[in-house]
């Protein structure tokens, strides 16, 4: 039993990991076909996993409704929303447009889904403003540097800010876009590169831990 539950998954992980790693150095068509095959398998597994997720979603909300758990009314919207999109999709055969006319799926996509998604993204603007009000308080020298950089970038990104800069500091000969250009090209890129390198190395080590079976959380109980 241990052989099936522990050793076989570990061997599969090791074998596929080493093969995929090796394929980077082997330019053969066979190597490319292998990678393509792995990608296709991943797609197939993702498709079935989505069904699993959907079943889990319906199951948990169904129980909430039957048990009248707090907030069970919202669980009804899960089913309503699902039917609201799936039924028109089936009726329209998955097509948002039929010639020049919008199908019911197209209508729901355009006037419901797009609007709701855009609204959620727009909520970020409000949160960013209130967060900025809280966050950019100068309590230390580092906070002052952060504040100064943020001040220049926020000001210089929009025409009104550029006009304000030109009015107040135009005599220096430096435009705010030049300052922002320097900030974005030098300190920001340097910081980003440093973080990228650290993340890449951490990623390599994590991947090696999984390939060589040192990290085995994903497998469940030994």
């Amino acid at each position: 039993m241990i052989f099936i539950k522990k050793h076989i998954p570990l061997f599969i992980c090791f074998f596929v990991g080493v093969l995929t790693l090796g394929s980077y150095y082997v330019p053969n068509a066979g190597s490319e076909n292998y990678i393509e095959m792995m990608n296709k398998w991943e797609n197939i597994v993702a498709g079935f996993a989505f069904l699993l997720g959907l079943m889990s979603l319906f199951y948990s909300h169904f129980h909430k409704i039957t048990r009248r758990a707090p907030g069970w009314g919202y669980s009804l919207f899960v089913y309503a929303g699902f039917l609201l999109v799936v039924v028109p999709a089936i009726v329209s055969n998955g097509q948002p447009m039929k010639g020049p006319d919008m199908t019911s799926l197209g209508w729901i996509y355009r006037f419901v889904f797009t609007s709701l998604s855009g609204t959620m993204f727009a909520v970020l603007a409000f949160y960013i403003v209130s967060t900025a009000y809280r966050a950019f308080r100068i309590k230390s020298p580092q906070a002052f540097v952060l504040f100064a950089a943020a001040f220049m970038v926020i000001l210089g990104r929009v025409p009104l800010g550029q006009m304000m800069w030109d009015g107040a500091l135009g005599w220096t000969g430096y435009q705010v876009t030049d300052v922002i250009e320097w900030l974005m090209s030098v300190p920001v890129v340097a910081g980003r590169r440093g973080i990228m390198i650290g993340i890449a190395i951490g990623g390599i080590v994590t991947a090696l831990k999984i390939i060589f079976g040192i990290e085995r959380q994903y497998m469940g109980k030994d």
Binding site: A46, A49, L52
Partner: peptide, 13 residues
């Protein structure tokens, strides 16, 4: 959903 399946095993363990 795949992450959910893995995390179920992790939490159960």
């Amino acid at each position: 959903p795949i992450v959910m399946t893995v995390c179920k095993e992790v939490v159960k363990q």
